[in-house]
């Protein structure tokens, strides 16, 4: 029996991505280590994403609080607003929304950058210059996205909670210390740790898919555009799939 062409293409793509990921692990732990480029990538990927992540985090906290309030007022549990908002942000909304924004900004930029380097022979030029381009371009970027996304998510969560505090104060008068007390009363390590752990996987997926799409970009400017686009679409989808798996795992471990 012959598999449908679309399924064959999907399986081939999945196989290629798996092989690319396997190569990452083989290359990542073998010298020579590209520390200088890794630090440069951490700066570009982490530090330069801060304003976007900060602004979206702030709006996320503010809007979530304003949307939740009427429902909680209806049930007469308005006092639980800080606890509800912080729990939602830390456990789910913060990591997922930040990862999606990260996929849009970083996934597309990695896909386009490596794609254009590929079509203009810059990757070949690197190889000729005594550089392993996979180590220099892929390993450093994937390591940087894996390490930087959790940091960005923690910062975004903190800014979101501050946004939530302002949201609470639009129609009520709550002090910062009372708000924070309520937040920390409800939050547990079992809320924070699994949420942070899954962001390492989100970051890894965004970096890996962006690099895979860019590194295997087809010739021409159309190929570069397609690489950037599919990098975002695929990494956003994978973020949701990882999230689904993470929820199941934390549930099985009794951490929910």
């Amino acid at each position: 029996m012959q598999l449908p062409k679309s399924l064959q293409a999907f399986l081939q793509e999945a196989g290629n991505l798996a092989a690319f990921t396997g190569r990452f692990f083989r290359e990542a732990f073998r010298p020579r280590y590209e520390w200088r480029e890794f630090i440069r990538q951490c700066f570009i990927i982490g530090y330069k994403s801060l304003p976007l992540i900060g602004v979206t985090g702030f709006i996320m906290g503010l809007v979530l609080t304003m949307q939740l309030r009427p429902s909680l007022v209806d049930y007469g549990v308005e006092a639980q607003l800080p606890a509800m908002v912080s729990l939602a942000i830390i456990r789910e909304i913060g990591p997922v929304i930040t990862a999606l924004i990260f996929a849009g900004k970083i996934g597309s930029s990695i896909g386009a950058e490596l794609g254009s380097m590929k079509v203009t022979e810059q990757i070949d030029a690197m190889e000729v210059s005594g550089t392993n381009p996979f180590k220099y371009l892929v390993v450093t970027r994937v390591a940087a996205t894996t390490l930087m996304l959790p940091v960005l998510v923690i910062l975004s969560d903190a800014i979101s909670i501050y946004g939530g505090y302002l949201g609470v104060n639009i129609k009520a008068n709550t002090s910062w210390s009372l708000f924070i007390k309520q937040v920390f009363e409800i939050l547990d390590f079992s809320d924070v740790i699994p949420a942070v752990i899954k962001t390492f996987f989100f970051g890894f997926a965004v970096g890996m898919i962006g690099c895979y799409k860019g590194y295997n970009s087809k010739k021409g400017t159309e190929g570069v555009g397609a690489s950037a686009n599919t990098a975002v679409v695929l990494s956003s989808l994978v973020v949701f799939i990882i999230d689904l798996v993470a929820v199941q795992v934390t549930d099985l471990l009794g951490l929910n």
Binding site: S116, M117, T120, E121, Q122, D124, A125
Partner: peptide
């Protein structure tokens, strides 16, 4: 290289 391959 034909396309020069200068690092952008």
């Amino acid at each position: 290289f034909q396309s020069n391959a200068l690092y952008d």
